[in-house]
Nucleic acid binder design. Structure first.
Lengths: 204, 204
DNA sequence: TTAATAGTTGACTGATTAGTAAACCAAAGT
DNA sequence: ACTTTGGTTTACTAATCAGTCAACTATTAA
């Protein structure tokens, strides 16, 4: 067997990075190749189109994040604390990224998904499926919280969808206004939406 | 004075239409010109760049919508009913548009704003300002509702921001999933987020 | 009627776009 | 040593991109 390469991973990483910061249409194959330190020939050796690379990049990104989510949303941690930890984690990540590029970037899944939804069925389906996986963390945490009587949410799925929407809307606004404070504050908004009595972290 | 033209308006209309359905980067000046029935020379006679045209298009779009919002959020209508009417109106608009192009398009301000935020300061500022105007309708409706004792929201602005985020998040998800039902259902989610006891329209 | 004004047109850059194809190269198995 | 496998590289399309410019034309006020 001949030499093996990590160029494929470098390409998906570069793609995620650029598309997160800019956008799908605003990121060219040449940009991706340059950032990945690969030539265009290599790009099309691994992927048959920009669309397919994007789907692969989103998938790879999710795979990494999923591991963290599994830990954060572990049934061993109290349900409302799962949200607190998750939101802290998101905050940290976005704050870190802001230091590098100067901007709050929001949720790549939502930005990219929203952009391509009318134009690229392959990418859209990928995003759709990933978001669907993601919301399940919310649903079971809410179900557990309800079962433990710490919130009232007979329809856990509906509540999860509301929170999910609120979360994504906040990230989008934080991106537009480049305001990290919106995300910092969201922990309290989330508890309010969930109808939780104030927990360890006090609200304003 | 020589002949006067409506080409400028045709161009901003076409731009909004295309960018709403697709995206900023995904919409070319040539596309806009073709849809508007104008030549590129005319485009650059009226606007000095694609970026400036976009800002003008968003501004013109907002000017039209603002008139409707003023009517819907009139202090003469009961505060919670303002939201119901507004959300019905949004629903109608998106459903209509879906018939034409087959897709739920969400909120153009948010999609475009989110896309260009890291790349185009002129457009970003425009979006930022418009969103800021828009949230004021929410704030005063919530303030009125609180004053009338129909909801409990001592911090009207915070509540408005939460609802605003939830609203935008829902529109974005509806776009990604191409699911009008999310918007249909949002009226009830909104009332829940506001903490309103069930009004005329019953919830699920 | 004429000249200034307001807008239109088409032909043109030069850069960038996604994608292709063939030559090339390095390692590992035989 | 040599061939197969897995990957890289260079050079290339043909289309599209934002933006320019000079020539043209329709209107109207004087």
């Amino acid at each position: 067997m001949p030499r093996k390469s990590d160029a494929k991973e470098r390409l998906t990483d570069a793609a995620m990075d650029l598309m997160w910061e800019n956008s799908y249409s605003g990121t060219s194959v040449d940009d991706i190749c340059e950032k990945a330190g690969a030539k265009k020939g290599s790009f099309y050796y691994f992927f048959k189109s920009k669309s397919e690379l994007t789907a692969a990049a989103l998938e790879a990104d999710w795979k990494k994040k999923k591991a963290d989510m599994d830990a954060i949303f572990s049934p061993t941690v109290p349900p409302l604390e799962r949200f607190e930890r998750y939101l802290d984690c998101v905050y940290e990540g976005l704050a870190e990224r802001q230091k590098q590029c100067g901007s709050i970037l929001g949720c790549p899944m939502l930005s990219i998904g929203s952009e391509v939804s009318t134009q690229d069925q392959v990418v859209r389906d990928t995003v759709d499926r990933i978001l669907d996986s993601k919301i399940n963390y919310f649903i079971s945490a809410i179900r557990d919280a309800h079962a433990q009587g710490v919130i009232v949410a007979p329809d856990a799925e509906a509540k999860a969808r509301a929170l999910f929407a609120c979360y994504h809307g906040t990230l989008a606004q934080a991106r537009i206004q480049n305001d990290l404070g919106l995300i910092r504050n969201f922990k309290y908004v989330a508890m309010d939406v969930l109808g939780a009595k104030q927990t360890s972290t006090a609200s304003a």
